[in-house]
């Protein structure tokens, strides 16, 4: 068993881990960093429950080797809540729109929605559906998940417009 040191930024903090080179990023984040929002639903990149952002782009962390994370910036669901426990608008929208049921796919969906809500180009419902189609949910029929993302996207675009005018 070969071990290797991986240094990366996780949720804004520089971290260093000594890991088995065979480990996936999801195993490192759950096992070494105790970031339990990362869920394993298939272990082969089919379900999206382990989605995290790597340098701003969503990846299935179960099929991303931990060693590839060297020097990368990783954002997990835990990183969306600030140090005082205030949650982000997309998390609040998932609550308010009833986009959460069993909750197991929720962390992955919220992470996959971040590129949509941070983009300056408004996405149609159809485009939102396309962008989260790597995440599977069996409880909600996706209806309220799409609603939550659409609502947050609109709100953020309005906010950016508002601040731009000032």
């Amino acid at each position: 068993m070969t071990r290797k040191t991986v240094t990366c930024t996780i949720n804004g903090k520089r971290r260093e881990f000594s890991i088995d080179v065979r480990s996936s990023l999801s195993e490192m984040l759950r096992g070494e960093a105790s970031l339990d929002s990362i869920k394993h639903g298939c272990d082969v990149g089919e379900c999206g429950a382990c989605t995290v952002l790597i340098d701003g782009r969503p990846f299935n962390s179960c099929i991303y080797l931990a060693v590839w994370a060297e020097g990368k910036e990783i954002l997990t669901l835990e990183g969306l809540t600030d140090t005082k426990g205030t949650i982000s608008d997309i998390q609040q929208a998932f609550m308010d729109e009833g986009a959460v049921q069993c909750g197991f796919c929720t962390p992955g969906f919220i992470m996959s929605s971040i590129p949509i809500i941070t983009s300056d180009t408004p996405a149609s419902r159809e485009e939102i559906r396309k962008q989260v189609s790597g995440n599977l949910c069996r409880c909600t029929g996706y209806e309220n998940i799409v609603n939550a993302i659409e609502k947050t996207q609109k709100k953020r675009i309005e906010e950016r417009k508002g601040s731009g005018k000032k």
Partner: peptide, 11 residues
């Protein structure tokens, strides 16, 4: 809203 919603959206 669900009583467990916050725990589920924060991980």
């Amino acid at each position: 809203n669900r009583v467990d919603a916050r725990d589920k959206v924060t991980g």
